[in-house]
């Protein structure tokens, strides 16, 4: 695997660990591109604080600045690093223990009641990590 996959994921988790940066990313995700001034007006922090965080997020590749005059630069979310972090979460969220336990129960149940019809549609297990 590329050595930097971990670095990409780490930048996402570091960014998400700070409540202001989380709020900035959430605002860009829900409302689309915005300037530092827009964001300062929407969040309980100064425009200067927002600008500082945006610079850090841009450096990490989590937001991109659209070309424009300094105060009118709009930032938008750059989702590719989030998708790398998502892979990491998918591995942690994958649950094989529950379905394998259900498989064992299914086989044991069948052994006790060889003539029983399969319990179709009642024994399913939903793997927590496998969401669309």
């Amino acid at each position: 695997m590329p050595p930097d996959i971990e670095a990409i994921a780490e930048q996402v988790f570091v960014a998400l660990a700070d409540p202001t940066r989380r709020a900035i990313l959430a605002a860009l995700a829900s409302g689309g591109p915005a300037t530092a001034t827009d964001l300062g007006g929407r969040l309980p922090v100064t425009r200067q604080a927002v600008a500082k965080h945006l610079a850090l997020l841009a450096e990490a590749g989590l937001v991109t600045a659209e070309p424009g005059e300094r105060r009118r630069v709009r930032y938008r979310l750059h989702s590719a690093p989030m998708q790398v972090a998502q892979q990491f979460l998918a591995a942690l969220a994958r649950d094989w223990d529950s379905p394998l336990g259900a498989l064992k129960d299914h086989l044991d149940r069948g052994a006790r009641e060889p003539a029983a019809a399969p319990l179709h549609g009642t024994q399913g297990h939903r793997p927590e990590g496998q969401t669309p």
């Binding site: 659209e66 938008r76 990491f88 994958r94 394998l100």
Partner: peptide
Amino acid sequence: RLTVVESGFAQLSDQAFHDAFDGNTKGWA
């Protein structure tokens, strides 16, 4: 003895790697 192996969580294609680092990727906007 049943073994299940799920692999590929850490894969990253050249394109995905490029996208993750390239700040000028075309996006939704």
